[in-house]
């Protein structure tokens, strides 16, 4: 016979054991993730960080010695790494700028009162489901000396093998000769790859912007119209500020993506001509897998962490800047 107090006590005890059972079940549900993330995210990162402080030259090497931060110092002194950082910086600036502006423009165009909007949206999005390998192959063919790009533009440029830099070309008519690798600007080949990437990324970003544009209620524009704000004025004072979170997202994702560009450079140029399309990830790849003396896995790991810090730095600045400037509204 249970008295009322024992019933109450056993009630809480039962609740506690139920809560414990639920927690145990929940841990069982997330156990696969915890194990995989524990090994392939945490342990792998710790291990990669560790080897960046050793003299490990290749993955085949059995033992290695701890040598402190010298890999990080050597990475900054490495002229190839310097070149690759400058290349990827141009790539980041030009590609993220143009693909964001282009995507907003196309989204504005598609957001108008048009029939068959779904069809257009589908058509625009389709090319961006193709793999970077396919895009690279197709454009390699389009960029041939005898290819469609030269035909359309009426030019005769070896797009994939032209190391002349942007600033060299701009200043040449004024008799200024730029020979420094660091000052000559992105090469024609590098800009050809940028153009390809902008062209193929705009459609998918456009879909993100379009979804955001359609979330803006029409009464906002109606109210603005009454106050005399239409057209460009409404675009800069209503649409753009409301798109701010999405623009931030697209720029941040663009930054992360462009700084890690690899596939296109590996398939189309292997970093050439004259290292003008050498990217940090391409360099890290060659140093990790390269044969013989060029292989330096520890140095490559150090470069990878430096690149990660650079990416975090830029995305952090972007978030801070865009968030703080939104406080004015």
């Amino acid at each position: 016979m249970a008295t009322s107090t024992t019933v109450a006590r056993s009630g809480t005890a039962r609740q506690r054991s139920l809560a414990r059972r639920e927690a145990l079940t929940a841990y069982a549900f997330i156990a696969p993730y915890l194990i995989i993330a524990g090994i392939f995210t945490v342990a792998l990162l710790v291990y990669a960080f560790y080897i960046s402080f050793t003299d490990l030259k290749s993955s085949l090497q059995r033992s290695s010695n701890f040598i402190g931060i010298s890999n990080y110092i050597n990475a900054f002194r490495d002229s190839e790494f310097q070149i690759s950082l400058i290349n990827v910086f141009w790539y980041f600036v030009i590609v993220t700028t143009f693909q964001t502006i282009g995507a907003v423009a196309v989204a504005m165009l598609l957001n108008a009162k048009l029939r068959g909007q779904r069809l257009y949206r589908t058509l625009f999005y389709a090319p961006s489901v193709a793999s970077s390998a396919v895009i690279s192959m197709i454009f390699l063919w389009l960029y041939l000396r005898t290819g469609w790009i030269n035909y359309f533009l009426g030019t005769d440029i070896a797009w994939i093998n032209d190391a002349r830099g942007l600033f060299q070309l701009i200043f040449a008519p004024f008799g200024v000769k730029i020979t420094s690798t660091f000052l000559k600007g992105p090469s024609i080949t590098w800009m050809a790859l940028m153009a390809m990437n902008i062209f193929t990324t705009i459609p998918s970003l456009m879909v993100i912007f379009l979804a955001a544009l359609q979330d803006i209620p029409s009464y906002v524009y109606e109210a603005a119209e009454i106050d005399g704000s239409t057209g460009l004025h409404a675009f800069f004072n209503i649409t753009l500020p409301l798109l701010r979170p999405v623009i931030t997202l697209v720029i941040v994702l663009g930054t992360i993506g462009t700084f890690q560009v690899f596939d296109q450079a590996f398939i189309m140029t292997k970093g050439g001509p004259l290292k003008s399309t050498l990217t940090p990830v391409l360099l890290i790849y060659t140093k990790t897998l390269g044969e013989g003396t060029s292989s330096n896995a520890a140095l490559a790991a150090a470069m990878a962490f430096i690149l990660a810090v650079i990416i975090f730095f830029f995305t952090y600045i972007q978030r801070r800047y865009i968030e703080s400037s939104s406080e004015r509204f």
Binding site: L45, Y47, A48, S59, Q260, A300, A301, A304, T315
Partner: peptide, 14 residues
């Protein structure tokens, strides 16, 4: 937020 390629390649040694 961890950049994929950055971890993938040092992961090769792992």
């Amino acid at each position: 937020a961890i950049p994929g390629a950055v971890t993938l390649i040092p992961g090769y040694v792992f």
